[in-house]
Write a protein that binds this DNA or RNA. Structure first.
Lengths: 225, 225
DNA sequence: CCAAAAGTGTTCCGTCTACACCCATGG
DNA sequence: CCATGGGTGTAGACGGAACACTTTTGG
Protein backbone atom coordinates (compact mmCIF):
# COMPACT_ATOMS: atom_id res chain seq x y z
CA UNK A 1 0.00 0.00 0.00
CA UNK A 2 2.58 2.50 1.03
CA UNK A 3 4.90 1.74 -1.83
CA UNK A 4 3.30 4.35 -4.05
CA UNK A 5 4.66 7.33 -2.31
CA UNK A 6 7.94 5.96 -1.04
CA UNK A 7 10.75 8.28 -0.34
CA UNK A 8 8.71 11.29 0.62
CA UNK A 9 9.01 12.91 4.00
CA UNK A 10 6.17 12.72 6.44
CA UNK A 11 5.38 15.65 8.65
CA UNK A 12 3.54 16.21 11.91
CA UNK A 13 0.13 17.73 11.19
CA UNK A 14 -1.78 19.50 13.90
CA UNK A 15 -4.99 21.48 14.28
CA UNK A 16 -5.34 24.67 16.29
CA UNK A 17 -8.69 25.98 17.45
CA UNK A 18 -9.62 29.63 17.57
CA UNK A 19 -12.66 29.59 19.83
CA UNK A 20 -14.74 32.74 19.67
CA UNK A 21 -17.17 33.84 22.35
CA UNK A 22 -19.15 36.96 23.11
CA UNK A 23 -19.32 38.43 26.59
CA UNK A 24 -19.76 41.90 28.08
CA UNK A 25 -20.20 43.31 24.58
CA UNK A 26 -16.76 42.12 23.53
CA UNK A 27 -15.60 39.49 21.11
CA UNK A 28 -13.36 37.07 22.98
CA UNK A 29 -11.06 34.20 22.23
CA UNK A 30 -10.44 31.24 24.47
CA UNK A 31 -6.71 30.84 24.95
CA UNK A 32 -4.47 29.19 27.48
CA UNK A 33 -0.91 28.47 28.35
CA UNK A 34 1.20 26.02 26.50
CA UNK A 35 1.79 22.83 28.42
CA UNK A 36 4.89 21.59 26.63
CA UNK A 37 8.35 22.81 25.99
CA UNK A 38 9.44 24.51 23.85
CA UNK A 39 7.47 27.59 24.71
CA UNK A 40 5.99 26.14 27.88
CA UNK A 41 3.88 28.73 29.66
CA UNK A 42 3.46 31.03 26.67
CA UNK A 43 -0.04 32.06 25.65
CA UNK A 44 -1.27 29.62 23.08
CA UNK A 45 -4.24 28.31 21.17
CA UNK A 46 -5.56 24.92 22.10
CA UNK A 47 -4.52 22.32 19.56
CA UNK A 48 -3.73 18.70 18.92
CA UNK A 49 -2.13 16.39 16.41
CA UNK A 50 -4.01 14.82 13.56
CA UNK A 51 -4.12 11.03 13.79
CA UNK A 52 -3.86 8.70 10.86
CA UNK A 53 -7.37 7.35 11.18
CA UNK A 54 -9.22 10.66 11.39
CA UNK A 55 -9.86 13.45 8.92
CA UNK A 56 -8.52 16.89 9.70
CA UNK A 57 -12.08 18.09 10.36
CA UNK A 58 -12.58 15.23 12.79
CA UNK A 59 -9.31 16.09 14.49
CA UNK A 60 -10.56 19.65 14.98
CA UNK A 61 -13.87 18.40 16.39
CA UNK A 62 -12.08 16.04 18.73
CA UNK A 63 -9.72 18.75 19.93
CA UNK A 64 -12.58 21.12 20.58
CA UNK A 65 -14.43 18.39 22.44
CA UNK A 66 -11.43 17.68 24.64
CA UNK A 67 -11.38 21.30 25.67
CA UNK A 68 -15.05 22.14 25.93
CA UNK A 69 -16.99 18.91 26.09
CA UNK A 70 -19.11 20.22 23.24
CA UNK A 71 -20.06 18.55 19.99
CA UNK A 72 -21.80 19.81 16.87
CA UNK A 73 -20.23 23.19 17.25
CA UNK A 74 -20.05 25.57 14.31
CA UNK A 75 -16.48 25.24 13.00
CA UNK A 76 -14.80 26.32 9.83
CA UNK A 77 -11.32 25.92 8.50
CA UNK A 78 -9.13 29.01 8.45
CA UNK A 79 -6.24 27.56 6.51
CA UNK A 80 -2.93 25.77 6.75
CA UNK A 81 0.11 27.33 8.36
CA UNK A 82 3.38 25.80 7.31
CA UNK A 83 6.49 27.90 7.78
CA UNK A 84 9.47 25.67 8.33
CA UNK A 85 10.31 26.99 11.77
CA UNK A 86 6.90 27.96 13.01
CA UNK A 87 7.26 25.42 15.77
CA UNK A 88 10.67 25.46 17.42
CA UNK A 89 10.29 21.87 18.59
CA UNK A 90 9.87 20.15 15.28
CA UNK A 91 8.45 20.68 11.82
CA UNK A 92 4.70 20.90 12.24
CA UNK A 93 2.16 21.95 9.65
CA UNK A 94 -0.90 23.21 11.44
CA UNK A 95 -4.41 23.70 10.18
CA UNK A 96 -6.35 26.39 11.98
CA UNK A 97 -10.09 26.20 12.62
CA UNK A 98 -12.37 28.71 14.20
CA UNK A 99 -15.34 27.75 16.35
CA UNK A 100 -18.28 29.79 17.62
CA UNK A 101 -19.71 28.99 21.00
CA UNK A 102 -22.04 30.55 23.51
CA UNK A 103 -19.91 31.55 26.47
CA UNK A 104 -22.67 30.55 28.87
CA UNK A 105 -22.60 26.99 27.59
CA UNK A 106 -19.00 26.68 28.63
CA UNK A 107 -18.57 25.16 32.02
CA UNK A 108 -16.55 27.52 34.18
CA UNK A 109 -14.97 24.61 35.99
CA UNK A 110 -13.39 23.61 32.71
CA UNK A 111 -11.79 27.03 32.41
CA UNK A 112 -9.60 26.36 35.41
CA UNK A 113 -9.18 22.70 34.70
CA UNK A 114 -7.62 23.45 31.31
CA UNK A 115 -6.04 26.70 32.36
CA UNK A 116 -7.74 28.72 29.64
CA UNK A 117 -9.30 32.18 29.68
CA UNK A 118 -11.59 34.33 27.58
CA UNK A 119 -9.44 37.15 26.30
CA UNK A 120 -10.71 40.25 24.51
CA UNK A 121 -9.70 39.99 20.87
CA UNK A 122 -8.73 43.66 20.89
CA UNK A 123 -6.08 43.13 23.54
CA UNK A 124 -4.36 39.88 22.83
CA UNK A 125 -1.04 39.15 24.52
CA UNK A 126 2.04 37.95 22.72
CA UNK A 127 1.54 34.34 21.79
CA UNK A 128 3.42 31.20 20.89
CA UNK A 129 4.54 30.74 17.31
CA UNK A 130 2.16 32.12 14.68
CA UNK A 131 -0.94 31.88 16.83
CA UNK A 132 -1.70 35.58 16.64
CA UNK A 133 -1.65 35.44 12.88
CA UNK A 134 -4.01 32.51 13.05
CA UNK A 135 -6.40 34.48 15.21
CA UNK A 136 -6.19 37.51 12.95
CA UNK A 137 -7.00 35.45 9.90
CA UNK A 138 -9.77 33.60 11.69
CA UNK A 139 -11.33 36.84 12.74
CA UNK A 140 -11.21 38.16 9.24
CA UNK A 141 -12.88 35.05 7.83
CA UNK A 142 -15.50 35.13 10.53
CA UNK A 143 -16.26 38.77 9.81
CA UNK A 144 -16.82 38.03 6.15
CA UNK A 145 -19.06 35.12 7.02
CA UNK A 146 -21.17 36.92 9.59
CA UNK A 147 -22.16 39.56 7.04
CA UNK A 148 -23.74 37.06 4.72
CA UNK A 149 -24.76 34.10 6.86
CA UNK A 150 -26.72 33.86 10.08
CA UNK A 151 -23.93 32.52 12.23
CA UNK A 152 -24.14 35.18 14.91
CA UNK A 153 -26.71 33.12 16.79
CA UNK A 154 -24.03 30.54 17.54
CA UNK A 155 -22.44 33.13 19.81
CA UNK A 156 -25.64 34.04 21.67
CA UNK A 157 -28.08 32.25 23.94
CA UNK A 158 -31.08 30.83 22.10
CA UNK A 159 -33.11 33.79 23.37
CA UNK A 160 -31.53 37.19 22.98
CA UNK A 161 -32.47 40.84 22.80
CA UNK A 162 -31.95 43.02 19.74
CA UNK A 163 -29.49 45.12 21.66
CA UNK A 164 -27.40 42.05 22.39
CA UNK A 165 -27.45 41.10 18.73
CA UNK A 166 -26.48 44.61 17.74
CA UNK A 167 -23.61 44.74 20.21
CA UNK A 168 -22.36 41.45 18.83
CA UNK A 169 -22.26 42.84 15.30
CA UNK A 170 -20.52 45.91 16.54
CA UNK A 171 -17.91 43.87 18.38
CA UNK A 172 -17.24 41.64 15.39
CA UNK A 173 -17.03 44.44 12.87
CA UNK A 174 -15.29 46.87 15.16
CA UNK A 175 -17.66 49.78 14.52
CA UNK A 176 -20.93 51.04 15.88
CA UNK A 177 -24.10 50.94 13.88
CA UNK A 178 -27.31 52.95 14.02
CA UNK A 179 -29.95 51.35 16.20
CA UNK A 180 -32.91 52.18 14.01
CA UNK A 181 -31.26 51.08 10.81
CA UNK A 182 -30.13 47.85 12.44
CA UNK A 183 -33.59 47.01 13.76
CA UNK A 184 -35.17 47.86 10.44
CA UNK A 185 -33.04 45.25 8.74
CA UNK A 186 -33.76 42.68 11.43
CA UNK A 187 -37.48 43.26 11.09
CA UNK A 188 -37.32 42.20 7.47
CA UNK A 189 -35.85 38.83 8.37
CA UNK A 190 -38.76 36.65 9.31
CA UNK A 191 -36.50 33.91 10.61
CA UNK A 192 -35.61 36.17 13.52
CA UNK A 193 -38.75 35.80 15.58
CA UNK A 194 -39.99 38.04 18.34
CA UNK A 195 -41.23 36.12 21.38
CA UNK A 196 -43.53 37.38 24.10
CA UNK A 197 -40.77 36.90 26.63
CA UNK A 198 -39.08 39.86 28.19
CA UNK A 199 -35.59 40.15 29.53
CA UNK A 200 -35.24 42.53 32.43
CA UNK A 201 -31.63 41.84 33.37
CA UNK A 202 -30.24 44.73 31.41
CA UNK A 203 -32.89 47.41 31.76
CA UNK A 204 -35.76 48.45 33.97
CA UNK A 205 -38.24 48.59 31.18
CA UNK A 206 -37.26 45.19 29.83
CA UNK A 207 -36.58 44.13 26.26
CA UNK A 208 -38.33 41.58 24.10
CA UNK A 209 -36.44 38.35 23.56
CA UNK A 210 -35.99 37.07 20.02
CA UNK A 211 -35.06 33.70 18.68
CA UNK A 212 -33.49 32.44 15.50
CA UNK A 213 -35.71 29.96 13.72
CA UNK A 214 -33.36 27.91 11.62
CA UNK A 215 -36.20 26.06 9.95
CA UNK A 216 -37.55 29.34 8.66
CA UNK A 217 -34.14 30.19 7.29
CA UNK A 218 -33.80 28.47 3.98
CA UNK A 219 -30.47 28.18 2.35
CA UNK A 220 -30.47 30.85 -0.29
CA UNK A 221 -32.42 33.33 1.77
CA UNK A 222 -30.61 36.53 1.22
CA UNK A 223 -28.98 37.89 4.29
CA UNK A 224 -26.97 41.07 4.63
CA UNK A 225 -25.87 42.87 7.70
CA UNK B 1 14.94 18.08 19.32
CA UNK B 2 12.33 15.64 18.25
CA UNK B 3 11.66 14.40 21.73
CA UNK B 4 9.00 17.00 22.33
CA UNK B 5 6.36 15.58 20.14
CA UNK B 6 7.17 11.91 20.43
CA UNK B 7 4.52 9.39 19.76
CA UNK B 8 2.50 11.34 17.27
CA UNK B 9 1.88 10.13 13.78
CA UNK B 10 3.45 11.86 10.86
CA UNK B 11 1.56 12.24 7.65
CA UNK B 12 2.42 12.88 4.03
CA UNK B 13 1.64 16.50 3.19
CA UNK B 14 1.25 17.57 -0.42
CA UNK B 15 0.32 20.67 -2.36
CA UNK B 16 -1.99 20.74 -5.36
CA UNK B 17 -2.07 23.62 -7.82
CA UNK B 18 -5.18 24.95 -9.47
CA UNK B 19 -3.75 26.95 -12.34
CA UNK B 20 -6.20 29.37 -13.87
CA UNK B 21 -5.87 30.83 -17.32
CA UNK B 22 -8.07 32.85 -19.66
CA UNK B 23 -8.41 31.98 -23.33
CA UNK B 24 -11.11 32.38 -25.99
CA UNK B 25 -13.30 34.20 -23.48
CA UNK B 26 -13.32 31.23 -21.15
CA UNK B 27 -11.85 30.62 -17.75
CA UNK B 28 -9.63 27.56 -17.94
CA UNK B 29 -7.75 25.28 -15.62
CA UNK B 30 -4.53 23.49 -16.40
CA UNK B 31 -4.94 19.81 -15.64
CA UNK B 32 -3.24 16.64 -16.67
CA UNK B 33 -3.20 12.92 -16.20
CA UNK B 34 -1.97 11.29 -13.09
CA UNK B 35 1.39 9.62 -13.53
CA UNK B 36 1.28 7.22 -10.61
CA UNK B 37 -0.89 4.41 -9.46
CA UNK B 38 -3.33 4.39 -7.82
CA UNK B 39 -5.46 6.33 -10.23
CA UNK B 40 -2.86 6.40 -12.99
CA UNK B 41 -4.24 8.09 -16.08
CA UNK B 42 -7.12 9.84 -14.32
CA UNK B 43 -7.50 13.57 -14.78
CA UNK B 44 -5.66 15.27 -11.97
CA UNK B 45 -4.27 18.51 -10.68
CA UNK B 46 -0.53 18.95 -10.70
CA UNK B 47 0.91 18.51 -7.23
CA UNK B 48 3.89 17.51 -5.17
CA UNK B 49 4.93 16.58 -1.69
CA UNK B 50 6.03 19.10 0.89
CA UNK B 51 9.63 18.61 1.97
CA UNK B 52 10.90 19.07 5.47
CA UNK B 53 13.10 22.00 4.68
CA UNK B 54 10.56 24.12 2.80
CA UNK B 55 7.44 25.96 3.85
CA UNK B 56 4.15 24.92 2.33
CA UNK B 57 4.09 28.15 0.31
CA UNK B 58 7.56 27.37 -1.01
CA UNK B 59 6.43 23.86 -1.90
CA UNK B 60 3.59 25.33 -3.93
CA UNK B 61 5.96 27.74 -5.70
CA UNK B 62 8.36 24.93 -6.46
CA UNK B 63 5.61 22.70 -7.80
CA UNK B 64 4.29 25.45 -10.03
CA UNK B 65 7.81 26.13 -11.26
CA UNK B 66 8.35 22.48 -12.13
CA UNK B 67 5.28 22.56 -14.30
CA UNK B 68 5.48 26.00 -15.86
CA UNK B 69 9.01 27.27 -15.44
CA UNK B 70 7.49 30.44 -13.97
CA UNK B 71 8.36 32.22 -10.76
CA UNK B 72 6.75 35.10 -8.90
CA UNK B 73 3.33 33.98 -9.97
CA UNK B 74 0.25 35.18 -8.11
CA UNK B 75 -0.69 32.29 -5.81
CA UNK B 76 -3.02 32.01 -2.86
CA UNK B 77 -3.87 29.18 -0.55
CA UNK B 78 -7.28 27.60 -0.96
CA UNK B 79 -7.22 25.42 2.11
CA UNK B 80 -6.29 22.01 3.45
CA UNK B 81 -8.03 18.85 2.34
CA UNK B 82 -7.73 15.98 4.74
CA UNK B 83 -10.30 13.22 4.47
CA UNK B 84 -8.83 9.95 5.61
CA UNK B 85 -9.27 8.14 2.32
CA UNK B 86 -9.00 11.01 -0.11
CA UNK B 87 -5.93 9.37 -1.57
CA UNK B 88 -6.32 5.63 -2.09
CA UNK B 89 -2.57 5.07 -1.98
CA UNK B 90 -1.82 6.38 1.47
CA UNK B 91 -2.95 9.00 3.94
CA UNK B 92 -2.11 12.35 2.43
CA UNK B 93 -3.18 15.76 3.65
CA UNK B 94 -3.10 18.13 0.74
CA UNK B 95 -3.04 21.89 0.69
CA UNK B 96 -4.54 23.42 -2.41
CA UNK B 97 -3.27 26.64 -3.97
CA UNK B 98 -4.59 28.54 -6.92
CA UNK B 99 -2.37 30.40 -9.36
CA UNK B 100 -3.19 32.96 -12.03
CA UNK B 101 -1.12 32.98 -15.20
CA UNK B 102 -1.31 34.47 -18.62
CA UNK B 103 -1.91 31.60 -21.02
CA UNK B 104 0.38 33.18 -23.60
CA UNK B 105 3.29 33.06 -21.18
CA UNK B 106 2.98 29.33 -20.98
CA UNK B 107 5.23 27.53 -23.37
CA UNK B 108 3.15 25.25 -25.56
CA UNK B 109 5.98 22.73 -25.70
CA UNK B 110 5.58 22.27 -21.97
CA UNK B 111 1.93 21.37 -22.43
CA UNK B 112 2.84 18.20 -24.24
CA UNK B 113 5.93 17.55 -22.21
CA UNK B 114 3.91 17.42 -19.00
CA UNK B 115 0.81 16.03 -20.63
CA UNK B 116 -1.40 18.85 -19.39
CA UNK B 117 -4.22 20.76 -21.06
CA UNK B 118 -6.23 23.91 -20.59
CA UNK B 119 -9.75 22.77 -19.81
CA UNK B 120 -12.82 25.00 -19.66
CA UNK B 121 -13.85 25.31 -16.02
CA UNK B 122 -17.47 24.91 -17.02
CA UNK B 123 -16.90 21.46 -18.45
CA UNK B 124 -14.49 19.64 -16.22
CA UNK B 125 -14.14 15.89 -16.52
CA UNK B 126 -14.31 13.50 -13.61
CA UNK B 127 -11.09 13.79 -11.67
CA UNK B 128 -8.89 11.92 -9.25
CA UNK B 129 -9.75 12.07 -5.57
CA UNK B 130 -11.21 15.40 -4.37
CA UNK B 131 -9.61 17.48 -7.10
CA UNK B 132 -12.90 18.76 -8.43
CA UNK B 133 -13.83 20.02 -4.99
CA UNK B 134 -10.49 21.75 -4.81
CA UNK B 135 -11.13 23.46 -8.11
CA UNK B 136 -14.63 24.49 -7.07
CA UNK B 137 -13.37 26.02 -3.87
CA UNK B 138 -10.47 27.70 -5.61
CA UNK B 139 -12.81 29.23 -8.13
CA UNK B 140 -15.05 30.53 -5.41
CA UNK B 141 -12.14 32.13 -3.56
CA UNK B 142 -10.80 33.63 -6.74
CA UNK B 143 -14.20 35.10 -7.58
CA UNK B 144 -14.40 36.81 -4.22
CA UNK B 145 -10.90 38.15 -4.63
CA UNK B 146 -11.32 39.46 -8.14
CA UNK B 147 -14.23 41.65 -7.05
CA UNK B 148 -12.15 43.57 -4.58
CA UNK B 149 -8.56 43.34 -5.76
CA UNK B 150 -6.96 44.00 -9.11
CA UNK B 151 -5.81 40.45 -9.77
CA UNK B 152 -7.47 40.09 -13.15
CA UNK B 153 -4.38 41.51 -14.84
CA UNK B 154 -2.46 38.39 -13.87
CA UNK B 155 -4.62 36.49 -16.34
CA UNK B 156 -4.16 38.92 -19.22
CA UNK B 157 -1.25 40.13 -21.35
CA UNK B 158 0.29 43.34 -20.06
CA UNK B 159 -1.59 45.20 -22.80
CA UNK B 160 -5.25 44.35 -23.16
CA UNK B 161 -8.45 45.81 -24.53
CA UNK B 162 -11.43 46.72 -22.40
CA UNK B 163 -13.49 44.08 -24.13
CA UNK B 164 -10.96 41.45 -23.13
CA UNK B 165 -11.08 42.64 -19.56
CA UNK B 166 -14.85 42.60 -19.58
CA UNK B 167 -15.00 39.09 -21.02
CA UNK B 168 -12.65 37.94 -18.30
CA UNK B 169 -14.93 39.29 -15.59
CA UNK B 170 -17.88 37.69 -17.26
CA UNK B 171 -16.13 34.34 -17.46
CA UNK B 172 -15.05 34.43 -13.83
CA UNK B 173 -18.41 35.54 -12.49
CA UNK B 174 -20.46 33.48 -14.87
CA UNK B 175 -22.74 36.32 -15.97
CA UNK B 176 -22.74 39.04 -18.56
CA UNK B 177 -22.38 42.67 -17.63
CA UNK B 178 -23.41 45.89 -19.32
CA UNK B 179 -20.66 47.32 -21.48
CA UNK B 180 -21.28 50.96 -20.64
CA UNK B 181 -21.55 50.41 -16.93
CA UNK B 182 -18.39 48.31 -16.99
CA UNK B 183 -16.40 50.91 -18.88
CA UNK B 184 -17.68 53.68 -16.66
CA UNK B 185 -16.26 51.93 -13.62
CA UNK B 186 -12.96 51.27 -15.36
CA UNK B 187 -12.67 54.92 -16.32
CA UNK B 188 -12.72 55.90 -12.68
CA UNK B 189 -9.71 53.73 -11.91
CA UNK B 190 -6.72 55.78 -12.82
CA UNK B 191 -4.37 52.84 -12.40
CA UNK B 192 -5.88 51.31 -15.53
CA UNK B 193 -4.18 53.43 -18.16
CA UNK B 194 -5.19 53.92 -21.74
CA UNK B 195 -2.29 53.72 -24.17
CA UNK B 196 -2.15 55.08 -27.70
CA UNK B 197 -1.70 51.58 -29.03
CA UNK B 198 -4.44 49.90 -30.94
CA UNK B 199 -5.20 46.23 -31.24
CA UNK B 200 -6.69 45.21 -34.53
CA UNK B 201 -6.69 41.44 -34.09
CA UNK B 202 -10.25 41.25 -32.92
CA UNK B 203 -12.00 43.93 -34.93
CA UNK B 204 -11.69 45.94 -38.08
CA UNK B 205 -11.96 49.23 -36.37
CA UNK B 206 -9.40 48.36 -33.70
CA UNK B 207 -9.56 48.87 -29.93
CA UNK B 208 -7.33 50.87 -27.65
CA UNK B 209 -4.97 48.85 -25.50
CA UNK B 210 -4.84 49.50 -21.78
CA UNK B 211 -2.33 48.63 -19.15
CA UNK B 212 -2.43 48.11 -15.42
CA UNK B 213 -0.07 50.44 -13.61
CA UNK B 214 0.68 48.71 -10.36
CA UNK B 215 2.65 51.65 -9.04
CA UNK B 216 -0.41 53.85 -9.40
CA UNK B 217 -2.43 51.30 -7.49
CA UNK B 218 -1.87 51.91 -3.82
CA UNK B 219 -2.89 49.37 -1.29
CA UNK B 220 -6.10 50.63 0.14
CA UNK B 221 -7.36 52.10 -3.11
CA UNK B 222 -10.93 51.09 -3.21
CA UNK B 223 -11.76 48.70 -5.95
CA UNK B 224 -15.11 47.18 -6.80
CA UNK B 225 -16.18 45.33 -9.85
C1' DC C 1 -21.64 48.77 -48.78
C1' DC C 2 -22.29 45.97 -44.98
C1' DA C 3 -21.07 43.14 -41.09
C1' DA C 4 -18.82 43.31 -36.77
C1' DA C 5 -16.80 45.15 -32.87
C1' DA C 6 -15.66 49.81 -30.48
C1' DG C 7 -17.07 53.50 -28.15
C1' DT C 8 -20.09 56.77 -25.51
C1' DG C 9 -24.37 59.49 -21.19
C1' DT C 10 -28.52 59.92 -19.03
C1' DT C 11 -32.43 58.66 -16.34
C1' DC C 12 -34.62 55.99 -12.91
C1' DC C 13 -35.16 53.38 -8.97
C1' DG C 14 -34.06 51.23 -4.86
C1' DT C 15 -30.92 51.07 -0.97
C1' DC C 16 -28.30 53.03 2.61
C1' DT C 17 -27.61 56.76 5.86
C1' DA C 18 -28.49 60.29 8.97
C1' DC C 19 -31.12 61.73 12.48
C1' DA C 20 -34.45 62.75 17.62
C1' DC C 21 -37.94 61.85 20.58
C1' DC C 22 -41.22 59.21 23.65
C1' DC C 23 -41.81 54.93 26.68
C1' DA C 24 -41.60 51.98 30.68
C1' DT C 25 -39.81 50.93 35.03
C1' DG C 26 -36.93 50.22 39.32
C1' DG C 27 -34.89 52.40 42.74
C1' DC D 1 -39.28 61.64 39.85
C1' DC D 2 -35.43 60.66 37.32
C1' DA D 3 -31.91 57.86 35.21
C1' DT D 4 -31.44 54.08 32.11
C1' DG D 5 -31.98 51.39 28.29
C1' DG D 6 -36.00 50.12 24.83
C1' DG D 7 -38.42 51.22 21.07
C1' DT D 8 -39.98 53.72 16.68
C1' DG D 9 -40.22 56.57 11.06
C1' DT D 10 -38.90 59.76 7.49
C1' DA D 11 -36.36 62.44 4.15
C1' DG D 12 -32.35 63.07 1.39
C1' DA D 13 -28.10 61.22 -0.78
C1' DC D 14 -25.90 57.93 -3.33
C1' DG D 15 -24.83 54.18 -6.19
C1' DG D 16 -26.23 50.57 -9.33
C1' DA D 17 -29.02 49.12 -13.34
C1' DA D 18 -31.27 49.77 -17.56
C1' DC D 19 -30.99 51.34 -21.94
C1' DA D 20 -29.63 52.66 -28.04
C1' DC D 21 -27.21 54.70 -31.30
C1' DT D 22 -22.93 56.27 -33.95
C1' DT D 23 -18.19 55.15 -35.56
C1' DT D 24 -14.68 52.73 -38.03
C1' DT D 25 -12.88 49.74 -41.45
C1' DG D 26 -11.71 45.22 -43.79
C1' DG D 27 -13.44 42.35 -46.98
Amino acid sequence: MTIYYQGHQKILVSVDCIIFGFEHNKLKVLIGHRALDPGKGEWSLYGGFVRNEESIDDAADRTLFELTGMRNVYMRQVGAFGSVNRDPGERVVSIAYYALINVKDYDTKLLKEHDVEWVDIESLPQMFSDHREMIAKARQKMQEKIRTEPISFQLLPSLFTLTQLQRLYEAVNGEEVDKRNFRKRIKEMDFIEKTELIDKTSSKRGAYLYRFNKNAFHEGTNFKL
